[in-house]
Amino acid sequence: MESRKPPPSPLVDSYVVPGDVVLDLSEMINQTIKLGMGLRQECDTIQATSAGMLRLSKPNKYWVESSQKRYVPSVEDTVLGVVVDTKPDNFLVDIKGPNVAFLPVLSFEGGTRRNIPKFEIGTLIYARVVKANSFMNPELSCMDAAGKAAEFGQLKGGYMFDTSTGMSRMLLSSPACPVLEALGKKLSFEIAVGLNGRVWVNAPAPSTVILVSNAIMRSESLSGIKQRAMVENLLERLS
């Protein structure tokens, strides 16, 4: 008989390091679990292969969340990439991964051979990862699953800076991250966060952009209350 409630791993929401045994499969018969990043099956056990926080999405999805400067592409991530080269069929885009990503010239909304966008080298692009495996270069797309542009594409103006992957995940989390909430109360700005640790900020005044970007970069190692205090401190200095 299949039990409806598989016992969760005791290590959920705690830090694991490579080699930690996360789950023992011999005790879990007739159950399905899904493994994400940083986990692998080793005979009858599930072991962590990277250091980070073990997460569980009920009922059965496990993955390890880590914070690093290098991005490991995975499907359905939204990333900020910089065009490093243009080829007839693909744009070569740097997404901070181990390899450059390909962005096919036709993967734009209503893209045909006739209306290939012209991107110069250094163009900043907000895109979605559609193919990621260890044998091929990752592939990007500027369309959502329905084939619509959905905010993907070139980002004009503004300022882009690098943080860690953990920081960008924190910025995207809901409820909204304290630093963004505190900034949003006083300032109006536009922000795009890529899961590869790149953040783009745009606002009419350059001083706003600088303030927002510095507030975000400094908030990585701060708690929610400290983040709010830091933002207030920065806003006071501005006015």
Binding site: G122, G157, G158, Y159, M160, P206, V209
Partner: peptide, 13 residues
């Protein structure tokens, strides 16, 4: 090499 956005922003700021 910085992206076009960074270059332009740093200079304009």
């Amino acid at each position: 090499r910085p992206s076009v956005n960074e270059r332009e922003f740093i200079e304009s700021a």
